[in-house]
Nucleic acid binder design. Sequence first.
DNA 1: CTGAAAGCGCTAACAC
DNA 2: GTGTTAGCGCTTTCAG
Lengths: 347, 347
Amino acid sequence: MTFPPTPEAAPSGRATIHDVARVAGVSVSTVSKVINGRYGVSAKTSAHVLRVVTELGYESSLIAASLRRGRTHVIGVLVAEFEPFALSLLEGISEALQGTGYDLLSYAGSLSGPTEGQHEGWERRSLSRLGGTLIDGAIIVTPTVEAPSASVPVVAIDPHTGPAGATTVDSDNLEGAIAATRHLIELGHRRIAHVRGRRDLESARLREEGYRMALAEAGIAFDPALVVDGGYRSEESTPAAEQLLSLADPPTAVFAANDLSAIRTIEIARAHGISVPDDLSVVGFDDIPAAASHEPPLTTIRQPLREMGAAAVRILLGKLDGGDDASDAHVRMPAQLVIRASTAPAR
Amino acid sequence: MTFPPTPEAAPSGRATIHDVARVAGVSVSTVSKVINGRYGVSAKTSAHVLRVVTELGYESSLIAASLRRGRTHVIGVLVAEFEPFALSLLEGISEALQGTGYDLLSYAGSLSGPTEGQHEGWERRSLSRLGGTLIDGAIIVTPTVEAPSASVPVVAIDPHTGPAGATTVDSDNLEGAIAATRHLIELGHRRIAHVRGRRDLESARLREEGYRMALAEAGIAFDPALVVDGGYRSEESTPAAEQLLSLADPPTAVFAANDLSAIRTIEIARAHGISVPDDLSVVGFDDIPAAASHEPPLTTIRQPLREMGAAAVRILLGKLDGGDDASDAHVRMPAQLVIRASTAPAR
DNA sequence: CTGAAAGCGCTAACAC
DNA sequence: GTGTTAGCGCTTTCAG
């Protein structure tokens, strides 16, 4: 059998498998077999099809293939937003995925959808929209609801429920918070405030609990006026910081639930003419990249973000390849105090 | 018309539109209409369908919808790898996309595919695999080849070709490199080496050119032995740094093509017992988050990464909504010297 | 060894 | 107002 010398030119836009088939003078199923290296195609035909594929710059549509086939060899990382915390995790995930044969797709879903408007449950929506089709497995970053009975294997990082739900990776938020608060106490502070994190996250609850425990341990009475809601985002912590610093008897130290709110607290303090760390000590949580480069460099609790991402990958791949590797269904990493320059002895 | 009270339970796994239709006792097209808010469905039916949707936790498959429909309202960011440079860009892109109604999907393609093995052209492959279906538009980070005649609007950040190809966003690599080298010269250095970047990127070429220009301007002869290939990745710059520091007459200063190779150079120097900045000054490029937190803090050329990401979004949205907004087809941002502690006067 | 046809989950004409 | 039908681009039995 001989093939005509490139009968027709490629049509405009993206080439489909039909274009390849037409130009090569074979059927689509033959092209499909060649592309996927299936048996049952003569060497000659195969070579010819491959030539046309190259010529047309054809690349099979991940979407269409995914819809039809089961596996896609793509891991999905679902985030609410691409903020520093998720980004550091992503870096670790990406690195851990190198050479595994899996591609990485990260998705930040937000609005749209039938049950519009509700911020909560974004992870369920995103997972539902991508799962069962586009991705073989998912890593969900700070999900707010119980992991849905998903169609694909899932591991959650820093989930709402703590290690209660499905497979999870988190760090020791309680010990971290205790260490942060103790650090402040050892520096001689007594009026220590807490900018609380997202109410819908277990990590935030544990950080508050650690704060209270360290206080109690040192015999310092808990003052409800010194605990304000900051959420985990900069904007949300602005009013919290304002409120704290406007108090008649303001705190001399603040333990913020994460670095973003810690940094914002320092900015607000500065605007109030309060010097950090001279007049106010501030400690954060997470140790995002910006913490170290901030002025002054932020004392914080380091979560091994990249390692956590890598751990999530390891577990997920185990689920995908092996069976139900329930052995390390819950991984907890240490959270460590990193002393920099945003904290100083009380005066 | 009355509806039966939830006839059948949802099947296992992800619910499809068929499940909803069956349980609700209507046709799939009716469900589709309700989901997408189309006209032609009675209020009663609509409410009932919505109830079943909620009950079943149904969410339409992005993939299937995308395949059928044109627009998906998701923007794709194509990267070769999730490294610090791309991550910072992503942060800016994500922020700029807030409230625009577009979701964000980032994809790092790698292996697999018919034309396997070739690292070059990953962007064409990824775009081809996602485009035309999953994403409405794409932002490609450091593409190595000419932007393909894509099926969707595309803007390239820091492309191989410079502002030659399609729509691009980059920073002033030439001026940045000149500033970096001048800084070293002003510090009294004469033997200044250059760890070259990725050969396939225009940005790397321009940085070398700036280095040469600044040298010439100061009347310093160009020494080929002082220019080595480092790529942009840490591992790739290890041998480069080794080679440089093992020279009989080693340099007293190094201008590295990016922060990752600058940091690696400092690490290698340390291993050789060479102190930075006392015995060796090092300046990088990019100002990734790790630059400031490195010890010693890295003197570098700052690219406004987040702003570049935001600019790319702005242009892309213009292309998507408006028509061909060729007005700012090429955006060039300034690159600025940031002096920290990895550089010092020559001794 | 190759091609025709069914169907993945969904939407959009077009009937009824 | 509602259901039927024809694909989107692809893979995969199953005939030829």
